[in-house]
C-alpha cells in the first residue's frame, strides 16, 4: 500500500467520522451562542446528543391516519444528508465521491429530501402540517435558483462541474473575489432558508401558524423525531461546508486544513447564533422578497463571471 493511499484513506475516514458524529454539535453551538448573547448560561453544547439518545429509547406515537409514507420523511432526510456529505469536500482533500456533474446530484438530493418531508407532513392530514409544507415548497422554489446560480458562477470560474474542484479552489482568489462575495451572500440566504434559521423561520417557536419547517415535523416522535433532528443538523453541516468551502485556503497541509475547516464551522455557527439573537423573524410576505434578493445576488455574480 503506497504511502499516499494510506493518507488518502485516513482522510476519507476522517471525512466519514465528521459527517457522522459532528452534526449535532452545530445546533448546540448556535444555542450556546444565543444563550450567551442573551446573558443566560443556556443548554450544554452537547444537548442534542443527549436528546437523540433519549428519543431513540422513547415511545413513538403515530397518528391513525399515517401510512408508511410518514416514516419516509425522516429516513429520507438523513440518508440524503449522508450521501450529500460524501459529495462535499470537508477538510484537506477532495470529497470522497466527487465526480463531474455531482453539483446537480447534490442540489436534487436536497430536493428529494424536501419532497419526502413534505409527503410525510401531508400524510398526517393535519391542516397545519399542510400549511407548513406549502410554505416550505414555495420558499424552496425561490431558494433553489440562488443555489444553482451560485454553482453556475463557481463552475464558470473554475471550469468544472464537480463540487470538489469548485469549492476546494486552491488557485488565487483575487480575480474571483468580487463575484465570490455575492455568491456567498446569496448562499447565506439559502442557508438560512433551508435550515429554517431566524430571519426566515424560527426553529423553536410553538405557534403552528407561524412555523414553516418545524410544523412539518410536528407529529414525529421517538426515533423518527430523532432522525429528523439529526437530519436537520446534518443539513446544517453539509450546507455549512458548502458555504465555508471557497473561503478556506486549503494549501497549508492536511492537519492545518482540517483544523481550519472545523474552526470555520465554529465561526459559522457562532455567526448564525449571533444573527438569530439580534434579528427577529420577517413577516411571512417579506420572506419571498428576501429570497429573491438572494437569487439576484447570485445572478449578478454569475453575470459578472460571464463578462
Amino acid at each position: 500500500m503506497p504511502e499516499s493511499h494510506l493518507v488518502h484513506i485516513s482522510h476519507v475516514l476522517l471525512h466519514l467520522l465528521t459527517a457522522l458524529l459532528l452534526p449535532p454539535l452545530i445546533p448546540g453551538l448556535i444555542n450556546k451562542v444565543k444563550a450567551l448573547m442573551a446573558g443566560r448560561s443556556g443548554p450544554p453544547v452537547l444537548q442534542l446528543y443527549y436528546d437523540l439518545a433519549k428519543l431513540s429509547r422513547k415511545q413513538a406515537v403515530f397518528s391513525r391516519t399515517t401510512t408508511w409514507v410518514f416514516l419516509m420523511g425522516p429516513v429520507g432526510t438523513v440518508a440524503v444528508g449522508l450521501v450529500a456529505a460524501m459529495l462535499v469536500p470537508f477538510g484537506h482533500l477532495h470529497a470522497p465521491c466527487g465526480f463531474q456533474g455531482d453539483v446537480i446530484l447534490f442540489a436534487y438530493l436536497f430536493g428529494l429530501a424536501r419532497f419526502l418531508t413534505v409527503l410525510s407532513a401531508l400524510d398526517t392530514g393535519s391542516s397545519f402540517e399542510g400549511m407548513g409544507a406549502a410554505r416550505e415548497v414555495t420558499f424552496a422554489a425561490l431558494a433553489e435558483p440562488a443555489l444553482f446560480l451560485g454553482f453556475a458562477a463557481l463552475a464558470k470560474s473554475t471550469g468544472s462541474l464537480s463540487l470538489s474542484t469548485m469549492l476546494a479552489h486552491t488557485g488565487p482568489l483575487f480575480r474571483f473575489s468580487g463575484p465570490l462575495v455575492l455568491v456567498l451572500a446569496g448562499w447565506a440566504i439559502v442557508y438560512m432558508a433551508e435550515n429554517s434559521r431566524i430571519p426566515v423561520d424560527d426553529p423553536n417557536t410553538h405557534l403552528e401558524l407561524t412555523m414553516i419547517h418545524e410544523v412539518m415535523v410536528l407529529d414525529h416522535s421517538g426515533r423518527p423525531f430523532a432522525l429528523v433532528l439529526y437530519g436537520a443538523s446534518l443539513k446544517l453541516l453539509v450546507l455549512g461546508a458548502l458555504l465555508v468551502g471557497p473561503i478556506l485556503p486549503r494549501n497549508a497541509g492536511p492537519l492545518l486544513d482540517w483544523l481550519a475547516f472545523y474552526l470555520a464551522l465554529g465561526v459559522l455557527a457562532a455567526g448564525v447564533g449571533f444573527a438569530e439573537s439580534i434579528m427577529a423573524r420577517f413577516r411571512m410576505t417579506k420572506v419571498p422578497q428576501f429570497l429573491v434578493a438572494g437569487v439576484l445576488a447570485t445572478a449578478f455574480a454569475f453575470l459578472l463571471m460571464l463578462v
Binding site: 431513540s56 399515517t66 416514516l71 438523513v78
Partner: peptide
C-alpha cells in the same frame, strides 16, 4: 452513489420502524 443511498435508507428504515409504538391517536 445510488446504492449507499438505498442501503442507508433501508437500515434507517428498519431502525425507525422498530421504535416502540404507543397507542394510535388521531392526528393532533
Amino acid at each position: 452513489l445510488a446504492i449507499p443511498l438505498l442501503v442507508v435508507g433501508f437500515i434507517l428504515w428498519k431502525w425507525a420502524a422498530a421504535t416502540p409504538r404507543g397507542k394510535e391517536q388521531p392526528t393532533w
